[in-house]
Structures are given as C-alpha cells and as structure tokens.
C-alpha cells in the first residue's frame, strides 16, 4: 500500500525533524546561544505528529512550555523555531517569547504557556468561541499528568464538560512532573476518572505509535466537531531527557530509561517503514535530508538579527488611547524611538 507508506514516511520525517531540532537546541543551550529554560519533547514525538494528523488546519492547538514538537508538527518552520530559541527577530514570537512561548497564529498554534493549568481554561475559551460562532473548529489542549491536580485543569474541564465545548484535552503522561512520579501526586492512577466527574468521555492508550495515536484521537475530534462535547485523553509516554536542560534527572533509574527507550517513537516508526519495504539506504537518505533542514535552521538562526528593542514597548498594548501607558524611571530609552504609545499619541496630536 504505497499511499499508506508515503503517509508513514511523512510522519517519520516530521518526527525526526522534531527530534533533530531538539538535539540541536540542546547543543545551542550548551553553547549559551539559548537561555532560560529549555524543556525537550524527545520521546514524545509520535503524540504531536499523530494528533496533528487528526486535526484540520483551522483547528486550534494549545500546549505547555514543552512546545517545540507540537509547534513543528503543526507546521512551524524549524528555522523560525530555532530563531526564537536564539532570541532573534525572525523567531516565531520575534524573540520575545523564547522556548516556553512559541506562537504560530497563522497555523492556529496558540502557544506556548508556562504556568501550570492556566492555559487549560484558556483553551476551553477558544472552544467556547467556536461554539459561540459556530465556526466548526475544534480545539486541542495538551498538558502533562502533573497538571491534572491544579485548579485551572479542574475548572477548565468542568466548564468544557458543562457546556459541551468542542475541545479535546490531551494529557501527555510522561510519568514525571519534574522529579516527582505520578504515584506521589495523584490518589488515582487512571486519570480519565478525573474527567468522568465532568461528564466527559475518557480514553487511554500508549503514545509511541504515530498512526495509532492519530486513529485513537480522531473519533474524539469528530465528536467535538459534531457538537457532542469534549473528550479527555491520557496518552502514556516518556520523556527521554530531564524535565528541562538545567534540571538533574536523579529520580529515575538508568534501567527504567533504557527500558522505555526501546519504544522510542522515532525508532518504532523507522522500523515500521522498513517492515513496509523501505530500505536502510532510503531511510539514511531521509535522515540526511532532515539533518540538512536542521543545519539550515541553525545557520538561519545564527545569522538572524537580534530581537528588536522597539518592540519591547510597542507590544505592551495593542491599542493607543490617552494617558501615559508605561511609566518611566531612570535609564529608560529617553528620546529614542520606543514605539511608546504616548510618543505616538504625541506625534499624532502634533
């Protein structure tokens, strides 16, 4: 079945792109081209790609700070993602957001959110808008298992369930919240039980097989689109790296990690392609093409202009009204072009 294999190859290419992107990001972090926190998605790639394949272009996607993979699966170009990590103007948030705050509004990737639970209600709000306007879109909201104990999660799910909003909640259960295994943070181990209380369907499955992910998520998306309400999906997965690049990973055993790596989603998909008749040579060629794409992304990000000072003030407010929108103290960019709304208002009045 050539078309099935082409599909799988495309999925592999995307997953491998995410993998290689993040390996290079880790290198960039070590070289101090990237600052702050860097949370890698390595090990979870089949979820981002599988879920995206169940979505339409018009659908909205929300993710936590562990957002590179989801953004790239959605279609963000690696070079714009890398430029963001490098703090460059060509980045997807013009260097203002960084690793934790990727945005790609054209592709309906609506962030990159760094406070646990907060974006869950926000995502429900996007779904509310779809119900309100009848625009036919579905929202998907990702978060970790550690995020299912906070108010934002419970209130977001409560309202989504009550109002039958067109949303699918996807809990990527990678077993640990920073250094804490789930058994120390949740009184129950089947997280779909939490969603049951909010009147929504629950699903659970393993997340290392990209097509399985797509096929299991699709009915939930369809249900949401038909107006039959939200679904909560718990996908069993594992992150191969630490919580973030600055966090040590002493809380788990080497053996456990090696065990889980046997289900490396990229390797699993690669093997599926071989089973479907692709040769090692063909796959090596694909890998080389991905490497090249990522090398280009790094070169692009290296060469890009730094983030622009004038954006710092001009992006605080979208509207220009009266008054002094941002206050000054010593050391403010006096007399320089700041995009400061009061400066603009003064100019308009002049």
């Amino acid at each position: 079945m050539a078309s099935g294999r082409d599909e799988l190859l495309r999925q592999y290419r995307q997953m491998q792109t995410i993998r290689r992107f993040e390996e290079e990001a880790a290198r960039g972090y070590a070289q101090a081209k990237i600052g702050g926190f860097l949370h890698l998605y390595i090990g979870q790639e089949a979820i981002a790609v599988g879920v995206n394949d169940a979505l339409e272009e018009q659908d909205y996607v929300f993710q936590t700070y562990r957002d590179h993979g989801t953004a790239i699966a959605r279609g963000m170009e690696p070079k714009h993602a890398m430029a963001e990590l490098f703090g460059k103007d060509a980045g997807c948030a013009r260097g203002l957001g960084g690793s934790m705050h990727f945005f790609d509004v054209e592709r309906n990737f609506l962030g990159g959110w760094a406070i646990i639970g907060g974006h869950i209600a926000v995502a429900a709000g996007a779904a509310f808008k779809s119900k309100y306007t009848g625009d036919g879109r579905v929202t998907v909201c990702f978060f970790g298992e550690g995020s299912t104990n906070i108010g934002g999660f419970h209130e977001g799910l409560s309202l989504a369930g009550l109002w039958k909003l067109p949303i699918v909640f996807i809990c990527e259960n990678n077993q640990y919240a920073m250094g804490t295994p789930m058994k120390r943070t949740s009184a129950i181990s089947d997280l779909t039980l939490k969603a049951q209380g909010y009147g929504m369907v629950g699903e659970r499955f393993d997340g290392h097989d990209v097509q399985l992910v797509r096929d299991r998520v699709k009915p939930a998306i369809d249900r949401a689109r038909r107006g039959e309400g939200p679904t909560f999906i718990e996908i069993n997965t594992y992150r191969f790296r630490g919580h973030s690049l600055s966090a040590p990973a002493k809380y788990r055993t080497r053996q456990e990690l090696e065990e889980r790596k046997r289900l490396d989603p990229c390797a699993v998909t690669r093997q599926q392609l071989k089973d479907a008749g692709m040769s090692e040579d063909e796959l090596v060629k694909v890998d080389a093409e991905v490497d090249e794409l990522i090398d280009e992304a790094v070169a692009f990000a290296d060469a890009a202009e730094p983030a622009k000072e004038e954006l710092v003030f001009s992006t605080v407010y979208a509207t220009r009204q009266h008054g002094t929108p941002t206050l000054r103290a010593t050391g403010y960019p006096d007399g320089r072009e700041t995009g400061h709304a009061s400066d603009a208002a003064k100019q308009e009045n002049a």
Partner: peptide, 11 residues
C-alpha cells in the same frame, strides 16, 4: 522597564 519581560537576552 514598565513592560512584560522579553525573552531575548539583549532585551
């Protein structure tokens, strides 16, 4: 500065 904190180190 009276702004949300931008990510880029130069800012």
């Amino acid at each position: 500065w009276d702004v949300p904190m931008p990510y880029a180190s130069n800012l």
